[in-house]
Computed example of a mutant assay.
Amino acid sequence: MKTIKVIALLYAFLNFTYSQAQTIETRENLCGSYIQGVTASPEHSDENTNEPLPANKHTRFLGFDILEINDVPYLQVSAASMNSEILFIDVLISEDYAICGSGEFSIYNQPSERTTLQVVIPVKDIIGLDNSDPTLQIEVFSLNANNEFTSNMYNYDRQAFKSLITHSLTDTPHTPYALEVIHPSDQVGNYHHDPQKNNKVIYCALERYYDCDYSLLDFLDINNQYSGRFAFPIKGQFTVDAHIVNLLFREDLDTHNTIIPTDFGVWYPYNSFYELGASHQSAKAFLAPYFALTHFSHPQTGKYQTTISWDIPLQHGEFQGNNHFQRSHEIYWMMNFAFTTNDMGPKKRALTQGISQHQYTQANKTSFLSFTGIKYNKASQLALLPLIVN
Score class of each variant (00 low, 15 high):
residue 1 M to D: 13
residue 2 K to N: 04
residue 5 K to N: 06
residue 9 L to C: 04
residue 12 A to L: 10
residue 14 L to Y: 08
residue 15 N to C: 02
residue 20 Q to W: 04
residue 22 Q to G: 03
residue 24 I to R: 07
residue 25 E to F: 02
residue 28 E to W: 01
residue 28 E to Q: 02
residue 37 G to K: 10
residue 40 A to M: 04
residue 41 S to E: 07
residue 44 H to G: 01
residue 46 D to F: 08
residue 49 T to Q: 04
residue 49 T to S: 07
residue 54 P to D: 07
residue 55 A to C: 13
residue 65 D to T: 12
residue 68 E to W: 13
residue 68 E to R: 10
residue 70 N to G: 07
residue 76 Q to V: 14
residue 78 S to Q: 12
residue 80 A to F: 12
residue 82 M to S: 05
residue 86 I to Y: 04
residue 87 L to K: 01
residue 94 S to M: 09
residue 94 S to W: 05
residue 95 E to K: 12
residue 96 D to P: 00
residue 98 A to Q: 07
residue 98 A to E: 10
residue 100 C to D: 04
residue 100 C to N: 04
residue 103 G to R: 01
residue 105 F to S: 00
residue 106 S to A: 13
residue 108 Y to G: 12
residue 108 Y to W: 15
residue 114 R to K: 15
residue 116 T to Y: 00
residue 117 L to K: 05
residue 117 L to I: 08
residue 119 V to D: 00
residue 119 V to L: 10
residue 121 I to T: 14
residue 124 K to F: 14
residue 125 D to N: 15
residue 127 I to L: 14
residue 129 L to V: 13
residue 129 L to I: 15
residue 130 D to W: 07
residue 130 D to M: 12
residue 131 N to A: 08
residue 133 D to S: 14
residue 133 D to L: 09
residue 134 P to Q: 11
residue 134 P to L: 11
residue 134 P to R: 05
residue 137 Q to E: 15
residue 140 V to Y: 05
residue 141 F to R: 12
residue 142 S to Y: 08
residue 143 L to E: 01
residue 144 N to Y: 09
residue 149 F to Q: 02
residue 153 M to K: 08
residue 153 M to S: 14
residue 158 R to K: 09
residue 158 R to P: 11
residue 161 F to N: 04
residue 162 K to V: 13
residue 162 K to D: 12
residue 165 I to R: 07
residue 170 T to Y: 10
residue 177 Y to V: 08
residue 182 I to E: 02
residue 182 I to Q: 08
residue 183 H to N: 08
residue 187 Q to Y: 10
residue 190 N to G: 13
residue 190 N to Y: 15
residue 195 P to Q: 14
residue 196 Q to G: 12
residue 198 N to H: 07
residue 198 N to C: 09
residue 200 K to I: 06
residue 201 V to P: 04
residue 204 C to I: 00
residue 216 L to N: 12
residue 217 L to S: 15
residue 217 L to I: 07
residue 220 L to S: 05
residue 220 L to M: 11
residue 220 L to W: 12
residue 224 N to Y: 12
residue 226 Y to G: 09
residue 229 R to E: 15
residue 233 P to N: 13
residue 234 I to V: 06
residue 234 I to F: 03
residue 236 G to V: 09
residue 244 I to A: 01
residue 254 D to T: 06
residue 257 N to Y: 11
residue 258 T to K: 03
residue 258 T to N: 09
residue 259 I to M: 02
residue 262 T to D: 06
residue 266 V to K: 12
residue 267 W to G: 00
residue 272 S to K: 06
residue 273 F to W: 15
residue 276 L to P: 02
residue 279 S to P: 11
residue 280 H to M: 10
residue 284 K to L: 05
residue 285 A to D: 14
residue 286 F to N: 02
residue 289 P to S: 11
residue 291 F to C: 02
residue 292 A to E: 15
residue 292 A to H: 00
residue 292 A to W: 01
residue 295 H to S: 03
residue 297 S to R: 10
residue 299 P to I: 03
residue 299 P to E: 04
residue 300 Q to N: 15
residue 305 Q to P: 01
residue 306 T to S: 08
residue 316 H to Q: 10
residue 317 G to E: 00
residue 321 G to S: 10
residue 324 H to Y: 10
residue 326 Q to P: 14
residue 326 Q to T: 02
residue 329 H to E: 12
residue 329 H to T: 04
residue 329 H to Y: 03
residue 333 W to R: 08
residue 340 T to V: 14
residue 342 N to M: 00
residue 348 K to T: 01
residue 352 T to M: 01
residue 356 S to E: 02
residue 357 Q to C: 03
residue 371 F to V: 02
residue 372 T to G: 05
residue 376 Y to C: 11
residue 378 K to S: 06
residue 388 I to L: 08
residue 389 V to L: 11
